[in-house]
Design a protein around this nucleic acid. Structure first.
Length: 826
RNA sequence: GCCGAAGUGGCGGAAUUGGCAGACGCAGGGGACUCAAAAUCCCCCGGUCGCAAGGCCUUCCGGGUUCGAGUCCCGGCUUCGGCACCA
């Protein structure tokens, strides 16, 4: 009975006291230690929105547990935190007149740091990175200049999302169901000059690199693969009858080219003007205008195939056949060549369009029994070519290669690979971001700012109206500049960079955050990078995590890094929801971590959020669970309080009895928990194992006989429990470690050593089945022979009852596990 | 539509990857302690038949492979994510 205890532990005073000790000892400071194995544990840094939420608590607690575990095992752990401090919410606060983005951001960071520290997270704050500081963003500008030098950054006119009411460009993320997220007016497409980074140059490597990411979640790898969207096929040039123009199409099914019955251009295709017959011009112009005014959203969601004929005819280079040229809504300008050959018999979209406009359908790939006249849908099956000139009778897969080769040989096409991944548009008409380091000169064009003039500082005093172009355009001191090339008056670029640029290389800044001559110290980077373990939300699978990989490859090609992949292992933690819905202000179901900590203490909050489910599963937050976690911590506290005084005295390793059994349980727990934390990362079952060990210790203590053997076993077991609890509940553990007579901090170890000799069972319980049904259990020495096991199994009365009057057909023994006796009626 | 993940007690979830389904915890029921309550401690807790011993059923549904399937294969249903006219 432990029940008489009056004093229960108070998490608040304990946590405050222990944290003070950590601070006094500067326990979380990190530096390179040559020769000591390093471990770089990184959680995606946070946007300083003002308050942390349960998603942050989960993400950062997972990272903290892993970081602490590795540190306890003697590795040199880098575990930094910083702030993704540029971005729209800060600017919106300014537009609403609340505060300048800088003040708003700084205040939020200050309060969020307090919240993070309350959780007891092991961060080396001397390495903190804030992307809105000139010391950080100047390197964004520097990378941009390097990319310009290499032709990886370029300016081009592209269509962007445009909100007519706010008179500004919106990022894709700011378009909600085709409407402006702020004023809800319909978003239009507008052509604007934008800066792009040539991520497309890295398509092949980004794709190939996925094969090496064996420690990334397969679903993230799959998402990236789809996003990159590699597609093998061929370009084919169709001459336009009676004109000099040629239409280049991209197709993955060149084998079906004899079945092409028309050609379609995207409405925006530059050739439309030139090839359109005069009598069709009016109709064509009207259609193009209609497409132009249609929102991105409407165009993407309406599946109806619509188009008009241009009156022109294209010549099939294989057959010489003349087929009509259309423009239609389902052909996109920004994929392939913006033009397709249509084969209605073998492509569903082409089929639908042909049906709607009465165009011929012609089967050329015959899988067997297919008739052009009565098809209900297109056929994508393989087969033998028919009506295909010299290729008739050849298998279509074979024909693909032959036909692409022929196109190349005859000069009207070539094999080709296209990607869905598009170059990365980084221009934002915003204030709170990295100024793009370019000066626009009437004579010299877009001229890079000389390296020596970096950083291009973001001016402080700007008008925040929320209307029109970037607020920077209204700051004459910023805009007016001299062309670095010719010295004439020129205009500074007023767009700022997408904030995904900031987060693409922050992991490298942490290795030498104070460096001011270079973005990072290459020596330190060689020591710490790449990241060993990276944790964040899956929502970044095709955004941040692609940019992050792309930047690493570019930096490698700039000679700054010896590797091209930024993170070895990735975990995406699951979303935290409440009552089946995502936590949000509008639903009023936000759980405030501060209130939870107030009630149960940081240790209990940490333990609870990890115990409820595996880290990668969605988690429905239950407040009741925190009570369970707090209860467990209290039990551990009581246990140590009661046991500690009894541990003083002679201790000797037991050879048998209850004490040996406790040692066995202890070492099995060490084995299990070490594997969970080191490899599997199912932190919930690691906690369950701690609870089981604690239960065993309580039972042991209630019958404690205070012999040297029992003392030895209990002391070892309690020390293991407290040490293994410490990554999860670091405050209480440090306190209890002291009660057990130790000095120092558990963050520094030791992690308990596992002894397989002690963990090994000498007896096992085997299940005995008859015809696959459990009928009894037998206890045998470990490693008992099949014969011995069968004798014992058949001697078991419950088993016997089921063998009586039957013939044994087969006997199976799985060593140390199970016996199955198969019988049939006599 | 395509790609991916998942479906186990009242609930969150376990199950060493083919070997005793339901660990650990939450909620619930019963008891102890208490004048009483809280806290704590002990016992029970998938369904069903049975006084009991015990039997039968049970991992979304239907088939299959196997001595043996939550786990593997085929077909279907449901939920959640991602992409979405990508030629």
């Amino acid at each position: 009975m432990i029940g008489e205890k009056v004093m229960v532990y108070d998490p608040h005073s304990t946590e405050a006291r222990v944290q003070q000790k950590w601070r006094d000892a500067n326990l979380f400071k990190t530096e390179e230690k040559p020769g000591v194995p390093k471990y770089y544990c990184l959680e995606m840094f946070m946007y300083p929105s003002g308050r942390i939420h349960m998603g942050h608590v989960r993400n950062y607690t997972i990272g903290d547990v892993v970081a602490r575990f590795h540190r306890m095992r003697g590795e040199n752990v880098l575990h930094p935190m910083g702030f993704d401090a540029f971005g729209l919410p800060a600017e919106n606060a300014a537009i609403k007149g609340q505060a300048h983005p800088k003040e708003w951001t700084d205040a939020n960071i200050a309060s969020m740091k307090v919240q993070l520290n309350r959780l007891g997270l092991m961060y080396d704050w001397e390495r903190e990175v804030r992307t809105c500081e000139p010391g950080y963003y100047r390197w964004n500008q520097w990378f941009f200049l390097k990319m310009m030098e290499r032709g990886l950054a370029y300016k081009a006119k592209r269509k962007v999302n445009w909100c007519p009411d706010c008179a500004t460009v919106l990022a894709n993320e700011q378009v909600e169901d085709g409407s402006c997220w702020r004023c809800h007016s319909q978003v239009e497409l507008k052509e604007m000059e934008q800066w792009f980074l040539r991520i497309g140059n890295y398509s092949e490597e980004l794709l190939a690199g996925l094969d090496g990411l064996s420690e990334w979640p397969p679903e993230v790898v799959a998402m990236q693969r789809n996003w990159i969207g590699r597609s093998e096929g061929a370009y084919v040039d169709f001459a336009v009858a009676g004109k000099s123009e040629k239409i280049r199409v991209f197709t993955t099914r060149i084998d079906t080219i004899y079945g092409a019955t028309y050609v379609v251009l995207a409405p925006e295709h530059p050739l439309v003007e030139a090839i359109c017959e005069p009598e069709r011009k009016q109709e064509v112009d009207a259609f193009r205008a209609a497409m132009r005014s249609q929102s991105t959203h409407d165009r993407a969601t309406s599946k109806e195939k619509k188009g008009v004929c241009t009156g022109a005819f294209a010549v099939n280079p294989f057959s010489g056949e003349k087929i009509p040229v259309y423009i239609a809504n389902f052909v996109l300008m920004d994929y392939g060549t913006g033009a397709i050959m249509s084969v209605p018999a073998h492509d569903q979209r082409d089929f639908e369009f042909a049906k709607a406009y009465g165009l011929p359908i012609r089967v050329v790939v015959q899988p067997g029994g297919l008739e052009s006249e009565n098809m209900a849908e297109a056929s994508a099956l393989d087969g033998v070519l028919q009506d295909s000139g010299p290729f008739t009778g050849i298998n279509n897969r074979e024909a693909m290669k032959l036909m692409a080769a022929r196109a190349k040989a005859e000069g009207f096409g070539e094999p080709a690979v296209t990607f869905r991944l598009k170059d990365w548009g980084i221009s934002r008409q915003r204030y709170w971001g990295t100024p793009i380091p370019v000066i626009n000169c009437e004579k010299c064009g877009a001229v890079p700012v000389p390296e020596n003039d970096l950083p291009v500082l973001l001016p402080y005093d700007v008008p925040f109206t929320g209307k029109g172009e970037s607020p920077l355009a209204r700051v004459p001191k910023f805009v007016n500049a001299k062309c670095p090339r010719c010295g004439q008056a020129a205009r500074r670029e007023t767009d700022t960079m997408d904030t995904f640029v900031d987060s693409s290389w922050y992991f490298l800044r942490y290795v030498s955050p104070k460096e001011d001559k270079r973005p990072f110290d290459p020596e330190a980077a060689r020591y710490w990078a790449p990241v060993d373990f990276y944790i964040g939300g899956i929502e970044h699978a095709t955004m941040h995590l692609i940019y992050f990989r792309f930047f690493t490859m570019v930096l490698r090609d700039l000679g700054l890094l010896p590797f091209g992949e930024p993170a070895k292992r990735l975990m995406c933690q699951g979303m935290v929801i409440k009552d089946g819905a995502k936590m949000s202000k509008s639903l009023g179901n936000i759980v405030d971590p501060d209130a939870m900590i107030e009630r149960y203490g940081a240790d209990a909050v940490r333990l609870n959020i990890l115990f409820l489910s595996p880290p990668w599963d969605q988690l429905d937050w239950k407040e009741a669970g925190a009570e369970g976690a707090a209860r467990f911590l209290n039990r551990v506290y009581d246990l140590i309080e009661e046991a500690a005084p009894k541990l003083v005295g002679e201790a000797k390793a037991p050879k048998n009895g209850e004490a040996l059994l406790l040692r066995r349980k202890t070492h099995r727990a060490i084995e299990r928990i070490t594997a969970e934390l080191g490899q599997r990362l199912k932190l919930n079952t690691a906690i369950a194992a701690l609870m089981e060990l604690c239960n065993a210790q309580q039972a042991f203590l209630s019958g404690f006989k205070e012999t040297p053997e029992e003392r030895f076993a209990l002391k070892e077991s309690l020390e293991a429990l407290v040490a293994m609890l410490s990554p999860f509940a670091p405050h209480l553990s440090d306190e209890l470690w002291e009660k057990l007579g130790h000095e120092g901090f558990l963050a520094l170890g030791p992690w308990p050593a596992f002894d397989p000799e002690i963990a090994r069972e000498d007896e096992v319980t085997l299940a005995v089945q008859v015809n696959g049904k459990l009928r009894g259990q037998i206890t045998m020495p470990l490693g008992a022979s099949d014969e011995e096991v069968l004798v014992a199994a058949k001697a078991n009365p419950k088993v016997q009852a089921h063998l009586e009057g039957k013939t044994i057909v087969k006997e199976l023994v799985v060593k140390d596990r199970i016996v199955n006796i198969v019988v049939k009626e006599r």
